[in-house]
Amino acid sequence: MVLGLSISAFTTLHVLLSLVGIASGLVAVAAMISRRSSPGWTALFLTTTLLTTLTGFLFPISVLTPALIVGLVSLALLIAALLALYAFHSRGAWRWIFVVTAVAALYLNVFVLIVQAFQKIGFLNALAPTQSEPPFLVAQAAALLAFLIAGYLAAVRIPPRGLPAV
């Protein structure tokens, strides 16, 4: 049991938070790229992604795993993004810090989604059972490239005065 939920129910909650975080993050990044403000989508993305990260630490794990390391990096990125947006209102260098940390946190959530997909979805697992095979590596490389491009576009297109805080 975790937070009064069975491990299965808690896992479902964690996955749902992650999927909402990814979907809302994609909308928020698309808005940044198109020079639009989307405070609601951005807040939903940051909240659900933070909750995804925090709930990940509540699973009964007794050793340091790659998932925990990704979670710690994600937490640091999210704290920086939250500070940049809500404490410093994305002014000056904080706008770049917000974009880079937000896009990087979204990328890490997608990175984990790809890992989980190759572990749990039968036909993907058959293509890359050890996650060292070309299909897995191509999927991860394509995601990384897409997020590098999106992050660059968002960073150069965000207005000089930054994004308004929610």
Score class of each variant (00 low, 15 high):
residue 99 V to F: 10
residue 121 I to R: 00
residue 36 R to F: 05
residue 11 T to I: 02
residue 103 V to H: 07
residue 161 R to C: 04
residue 143 A to G: 13
residue 156 V to N: 14
residue 160 P to C: 01
residue 75 L to P: 10
residue 39 P to C: 12
residue 164 P to T: 02
residue 8 S to G: 01
residue 108 L to S: 04
residue 3 L to E: 14
residue 93 A to D: 11
residue 81 A to V: 07
residue 18 S to H: 07
residue 41 W to T: 12
residue 73 V to Q: 08
residue 154 A to W: 02
residue 47 T to G: 07
residue 123 F to T: 06
residue 82 L to I: 13
residue 99 V to Y: 13
residue 76 A to Q: 00
residue 40 G to L: 07
residue 127 L to E: 06
residue 124 L to W: 04
residue 139 A to M: 03
residue 5 L to A: 09
residue 8 S to H: 02
residue 58 L to E: 05
residue 76 A to M: 02
residue 66 P to V: 01
residue 116 Q to A: 01
residue 7 I to S: 08
residue 10 F to I: 07
residue 50 L to S: 15
residue 97 I to E: 07
residue 43 A to W: 07
residue 34 S to W: 13
residue 63 V to K: 13
residue 15 V to R: 09
residue 98 F to Q: 03
residue 104 A to V: 10
residue 42 T to Q: 07
residue 131 Q to K: 03
residue 162 G to I: 12
residue 111 F to T: 01
residue 61 I to Q: 12
residue 88 F to T: 05
residue 70 V to L: 07
residue 6 S to M: 08
residue 114 I to A: 10
residue 37 S to D: 14
residue 156 V to Y: 14
residue 30 A to C: 01
residue 104 A to M: 07
residue 163 L to Q: 07
residue 26 L to Y: 02
residue 69 I to C: 09
residue 22 I to P: 08
residue 128 A to F: 01
residue 117 A to D: 09
residue 37 S to V: 08
residue 164 P to F: 02
residue 131 Q to R: 09
residue 109 N to E: 11
residue 71 G to V: 14
residue 138 V to E: 05
residue 22 I to F: 02
residue 137 L to G: 15
residue 100 V to K: 03
residue 95 R to M: 13
residue 75 L to K: 10
residue 7 I to P: 00
residue 147 F to S: 09
residue 53 T to A: 11
residue 63 V to S: 06
residue 97 I to P: 10
residue 62 S to C: 04
residue 35 R to V: 05
residue 45 F to G: 09
residue 72 L to E: 11
residue 19 L to C: 03
residue 46 L to F: 03
residue 154 A to S: 03
residue 112 V to H: 01
residue 59 F to L: 11
residue 129 P to N: 08
residue 100 V to M: 00
residue 19 L to F: 08
residue 40 G to P: 08
residue 110 V to I: 14
residue 89 H to W: 09
residue 125 N to D: 11
residue 70 V to P: 05
residue 21 G to M: 13
residue 4 G to L: 15
residue 91 R to K: 14
residue 50 L to Q: 09
residue 119 Q to K: 10
residue 41 W to I: 00
residue 39 P to G: 14
residue 60 P to I: 01
residue 108 L to Y: 04
residue 3 L to D: 11
residue 161 R to K: 12
residue 153 L to P: 02
residue 104 A to P: 00
residue 57 F to V: 11
residue 16 L to A: 15
residue 56 G to I: 05
residue 32 M to A: 14
